[in-house]
Design a protein around this nucleic acid. Sequence first.
DNA 1: TGGCGATAGTCAAAGACTTGACTATTCTGG
DNA 2: CCAGAATAGTCAAGTCTTTGACTATCGCCA
Lengths: 178, 178
Amino acid sequence: MDEVPDTGELDFWSFVELANRRLSTEFGFRHQLATEVLLTLNRASNIVTYDLEATVHRPRGRSWSGFRLLFVTWLAGPLEAKKAAELTGMSRATVSNLAKTLVAEGLLARTPADHDGRSVLLSLTEAGQGEMVEVFREQNEREHEWASVLTEVEQRVLVMLLDKLITHRDQFDVRGRN
Amino acid sequence: MDEVPDTGELDFWSFVELANRRLSTEFGFRHQLATEVLLTLNRASNIVTYDLEATVHRPRGRSWSGFRLLFVTWLAGPLEAKKAAELTGMSRATVSNLAKTLVAEGLLARTPADHDGRSVLLSLTEAGQGEMVEVFREQNEREHEWASVLTEVEQRVLVMLLDKLITHRDQFDVRGRN
DNA sequence: TGGCGATAGTCAAAGACTTGACTATTCTGG
DNA sequence: CCAGAATAGTCAAGTCTTTGACTATCGCCA
């Protein structure tokens, strides 16, 4: 008898359980734990990101990726657009578009690189630096609220595991953004 | 003397180190570990997601979120659009738009709920079920490649830590998508 | 019972991000 | 030294997703 599960009280975690069960018993898939890891990873990332964006950045009229670009430029000094794309994990075109906006808002400066006529160096203006100090103060407080649900050891373990997950990937052929 | 760091050989990890150093020594921010946790979390999630989308879903003409919607509908049986939004972490409008496309492609069925005249029940068509079995076979293999960089214990610990991170958030006022 | 606040879904407009094509510059091997 | 391949950045077009407004329905309490 095909029992239809009651979805009324289903939340993310009971869904993961349900998925585990059905994937293995009904369909014979073998790698439930892998599914669970990636499902949870994405879930966590989305929740946290959305919260930071909604509480810290959108109220200031800034987008999440705008912030990310400013952030790496702030800390990694003047850098080529290419490098910024690499560090933020965005495509080069995205960096280019975002930079256009941020330059217009007076936060970012774009200067031709003298060692390579094709390259462009991104750096923060005075205003950009001021803005980042302010924005990051807020973001860092909120980051702290999130992270401190875990003990310090747990946080370090988490970072370690995530690092391991994405470091050892040259073992197979991973598709990246450029 | 303002030492400009050489960004030439900067990658994600050395950037995180650099950020840690500058944020604490130059700007006096206090919660570096929190920053590192969230930076790494997002990084990992983006890398994995992009890879799955690029290798499994885009080649089949399917988007990442299209897949997610089909996935929860597949496993959690017929469910209300509202519930699908909750389980996938998307907004209700996104579910509505995606559903429109997927219905047109013959993978999804949308039927009015009889217990509530406002609600709509989403379910997979025959074709949708077939497609999911096939797509998920591929995705699950790839998930396995990713996850098996970690031992089984490490995977379980990772899931546990991520769960903890997003479960205990009622302690402060988190902004979610609806 | 009837009206009002809450809720489900959809739509339109806007924004964010990506792909693929294009230009300009640099590098390399003959 | 030059031609062709590779690389940096930008632009145009398209897709995906969201916000905010709107309609329809529901549920509750006066």
